[in-house]
Design a protein around this nucleic acid. Structure first.
Lengths: 231, 231
DNA sequence: CGGCATCCGGGAAGATACTG
DNA sequence: CAGTATCTTCCCGGATGCCG
C-alpha cells in the first residue's frame, strides 16, 4: 500500500479549516492546533531559540515544534530572525500582531483558574509565571504601591514595575530593584499562589532587599474562587 | 451501558495533557480539542439539542460531537437536561462557569479579526453573529442610543437592547422592538460588517420599523484594521 | 428522530534516532 | 544547536447501524 499512493504532498492545500466566518473560529484555524498557543505564550516576553522553546515546553517534540513554527510564521504571527554574526544563532519572535494575542492568554487563564481540575503544583515556565502577574494583579491591593521587583530564574532575569495598581513585567536586569527573588519559577508560584510563607521557602527561594515589600508583593495576586467540583 | 461494557476505554484515561500549571495551558487541556470551543460558542445564548448543534456546526461529525459533549460535561462546563414531558427531548446547556467563558470568544475574535487571512464571507451561525455584537460594539458610536432591535433568523428570534453605549443580546420575541431585521445571519453580517447598504440587500434582508435606526445600527460595530498581509 | 456505538481510512501528534 | 527522517500511536472525520 505504501506505493501507488499518489498523495500529492507537495501541494497539500486542503488545510483543515472550520469554514466559519466567526472570528473565534478563524482564530482556532490559525492557532487551534495542539501546542500552537503555548509556543506563542513562551515568546510573549521576548524572542527565543528553538532549543529554548523545546526546553520550556516539556512534552513537545522537535517535529511538532518545527511544524508549529512554520505555521505561525506563515500566518504572520511569528518571524524568524538571525542574530548578528557574534552568536549568529536563529531566534523566533512574535510580530506586533502576535504580541497583541496576550489578552487571549489572560482570558483563558482567568477562566481556567476556576476549574476544579486545575492543579497549580504542575511544572511552570518562567514566562507563564510572569505573564500570570499581568493577568492576576489586583489593582485594589496594589494601590499606592511604587516598587521595582526583580527576579532571577535560572539564568533568566525579569523586572516587575508596580505603579499604583498597575504592573509591567519584562525581561531585564534586576540590579537596582527594591527586592529580588531568586529561585525556580515553581517556588515563586508557591509563594504567590500557594500561600506558602517566604520563611517556609527559605533555601529554595531567596529574597534579597526589602523583605516587607516581598511579603506584600506575594499578596497582590488573588486567585478566583473555584467552582464546586461535582457536576 | 446496561451490559457492563468494561471496555478498556472506560478507565485507562491517560488523557493527553500539557502537564503545565499555567492557567491558559489548563484551559487548553479542558477545551483545546478540535470543535470544543465552537460547541461552547453555540451554547452561549442558550441550550440546544444535539441536532441543533450538528446543524449549526457544519463539518462536525456526530461521533466527535458526542465525544466533545461528554468531555465538556465531565469538565463541568456543560450539563445535559431533559425537558419536561411535552417535548421531552434532551438539551445541552452551559453551566454558570461555562457561561463565564464568553470573554475567551471575545478576545479570540477581536484578535483574529485583524488576520489577513480572515474571510468574512464564510458561513456564519446566528449565535456567532449575535455574540459578535457584544464583542464589537463601539460604545462611542452607540452613545446616547436607547433602542430595542429585533432579529428573525430562520425560526430563531433575538433581541438586542441598546442602552447608552452598552448592548445586550438574548433570545427573545422581537414584538415591540423599534426595528426588526429578518433574514439569514449572513445577510445581517453583510450589512453590519460588509458595509452593504440595506437597500442593496432588500429581498434578502427585510427591515421593518424604524429604518433610520436600522441604518444607524449597522454602523455601530467597526472592524479593527487588518495587519499587512505580507510577512 | 435523537443519541449514541462501531468500523475504517487518513492524517496529525508523539517518540526516537540521525544529520549538517 | 537546529532541525530532519522514520515509525508508531492516537485522533479526527465519514459511514453505517442499533435502539429508544
Amino acid at each position: 500500500m505504501k506505493s501507488e499512493k499518489i498523495t500529492n504532498k507537495t501541494l497539500p492545500a486542503a488545510k483543515r479549516s472550520y469554514d466559519d466566518a466567526c472570528g473565534a473560529a478563524h482564530a482556532l484555524d490559525l492557532v487551534g492546533e495542539r501546542w500552537a498557543l503555548l509556543v506563542m505564550r513562551e515568546l510573549m516576553l521576548g524572542p527565543k531559540r528553538f532549543s529554548d522553546l523545546r526546553a520550556d515546553l516539556p512534552g513537545i517534540s522537535a517535529n511538532v515544534l518545527t511544524q508549529r513554527l512554520e505555521g505561525l510564521e506563515a500566518a504572520g504571527i511569528v518571524v524568524r530572525k538571525r542574530l548578528p554574526p557574534p552568536a549568529s544563532s536563529q531566534v523566533y519572535e512574535l510580530t506586533p500582531w502576535g504580541y497583541e494575542s496576550e489578552p487571549i492568554f489572560q482570558t483563558l487563564g482567568r477562566w481556567a483558574a476556576r476549574s476544579p481540575a486545575h492543579d497549580p503544583s504542575l511544572p511552570l515556565s518562567a514566562v507563564s509565571l510572569f505573564l500570570s502577574f499581568r493577568t492576576m494583579i489586583d489593582p485594589e491591593r496594589a494601590r499606592g504601591l511604587q516598587a521595582r521587583v526583580g527576579f532571577r530564574v535560572g539564568d533568566e532575569t525579569f523586572v516587575a514595575v508596580l505603579d499604583d495598581g498597575a504592573i509591567t513585567v519584562d525581561r531585564g536586569d534586576p540590579v537596582g530593584a527594591d527586592v529580588v527573588f531568586a529561585g525556580p519559577a515553581r517556588m515563586i508560584a508557591a509563594a504567590v499562589y500557594g500561600g506558602q510563607p517566604l520563611d517556609a521557602l527559605a533555601g529554595a527561594l531567596s529574597v534579597e532587599g526589602d523583605r516587607a515589600l516581598a511579603e506584600r508583593f506575594v499578596t497582590l495576586f488573588p486567585l478566583p474562587p473555584k467552582v464546586e467540583p461535582a457536576g
